[in-house]
Design a protein around this nucleic acid. Sequence first.
RNA 1: UGGGGUAUGGUGCAAUGGUAGCACACCGGCCUUUGGAGCCGUGGAUUGAGGUUCGAAUCCUUGUACCCCAGCCA
Length: 555
Amino acid sequence: MNSTEPQDFIRERIAEDLQNGRFGGKVITRFPPEPNGYLHIGHAKAISADFGIARDFGGHCNLRFDDTNPTKEEQEYVDMIEHDIRWLGYDWGDNLFFASDYFEQLYQWAVQLIKDGKAYVDDLSADEIREYRGTLTEPGRESPYRNRSVEENLDLFARMRAGEFPDGSRVLRAKIDMASGNLNLRDPVMYRIRHATHHRTGDAWCIYPMYDWAHGQSDSIEGVTYSLCSMEYEDHRPLYDWFCDQLGIHHPQQIEFARLNLTNTVMSKRKLLQLVNEGIVAGWDDPRMPTLSGLRRRGYTPEAIRDFCDRVGLAKKQNLIELALLEHCLREDLNKRARRVMAVLRPLKVMIENYPAGQVEELDAVNNPEDDAQGTRKAPFTRELWIEQSDFMENPPKKFFRLSPGTEVRLRWAYIIKCVGVDKDAEGNVTQIRCTYDPATRGAQPTDRKVKGTLHWVSAQHALPAEIRLYDTLFLAPKPDEDENWKQKINPNSLEVVKHAYVEPSLAETQPLTHYQFERTGYFTVDPDSKPGALVFNRTVSLKDAWGKIEKQAE
RNA sequence: UGGGGUAUGGUGCAAUGGUAGCACACCGGCCUUUGGAGCCGUGGAUUGAGGUUCGAAUCCUUGUACCCCAGCCA
């Protein structure tokens, strides 16, 4: 990739800064997750921006956990987040940091601001602070504690740290402007008292810094040059700048961009947590979830997700990306790499009357027509086969190129067969199709006639039973969280379990997370629940289905 | 009604005063031992109104719409 070719407004701006020698030509970014939940596809966009921009300009990206709220954060999330970022294909080298590592420095800087008369201890309650803050249209009022002496502030702040006061009794606030139109500047809270055990610092602290006070200063300590974040922090930038300016420390440039929104899903941590806690999905890694762990289990590849992030671009406009784009990126990637294999989801027995009973032919099947390097495999062919129920119709409509009484069809990698009879049970259900095969057509096209349809199949004698999980979007509506009743819009058919499918014998020893294309059906990935003898596959995404479209149009 | 931000085909992103382009989606065709993939093609957009200019998506004026902000969350 060309390193200084701008592709978006952020890269454009950095390229310009570089020309002007800002930051001494350095480009250092950071990805700052809070360890209080799992990463999702929206984070992938941020990761792609933070790491991708650093890479493109020859700089580096730090991974820094914004762990300033001990009541919400856990080590489990730290581990999972690291795992997901690595899986996505990004590397932070030695640059793993935690905001909690800077607590002492932050405290010292707070003392400095107090000494400069720029911060004070406030005894107002949370409710009172809210009242004093004013509203969107009316200015706030100054706290009666705003003009305490430096000495008193210093003493009180030290005692806050020492644990002399209960939770919520006091806070440290910056002294800025209670009349500002920007609410973030109305004396923002810097520290609150929380007698809580932190996942890394344990009980060393009982006062914890707020985001605005911790984030910019952490960036500064790390020498970050560009602090990229989402649009809702635009209003916080004046405060970010104010803190750095008052302290006279290295001052990174904060740049905001629009977060990713995707159709047919919800993305907020709160809603994802609800889906998990209320058992609507099976967990954070349920294949229907937009979490990276869910997408991974579903069968998405890091390459596809990175490509998606590249195509989505970076801008400031509110957006809603169609799921179709993500799926396109996935299919494009899987098409090149997934081994082709035959699997029958809803089996229908075919008996080839003129094929010798007991005979087994090992036919050559190409593993991936897009990639010769993937070689070939053997597919056993016998007198009794399974084909897909949907590949047979007793009374077919026009343009149905599959099997029906009297018609011919090719069996992939094998022979052309002709349907000569249909067996039914007492209720009239088709139980078996009787066919004949043309021995001259093994792997070759007949010269005297044209046979259009090709079906996939498995030998009944050799087929392996498998469970196949068919997933659809969790929501049918493009914007499910448009209204408050988003949970009622959940797609009742987002998961369909096919218990008795058959797959070809070459899959006997397949391992979890291996990707396949089931020919004519879709891309499937081996679920972690799968074991030899009890195979389980997840449908990652279906193949584009031209027949399905014809059917729909006919309706 | 305070502050901040954003408006380009259905969706997303470009065009930085000089032919509005790309991708996905859609529609049509070709090809096909996956009705897959691939290939070719059609249609469709500058938020409204004024203005500046030879020329405006871009500059100016003025509307309109949408998003974010009143956590001791991040």
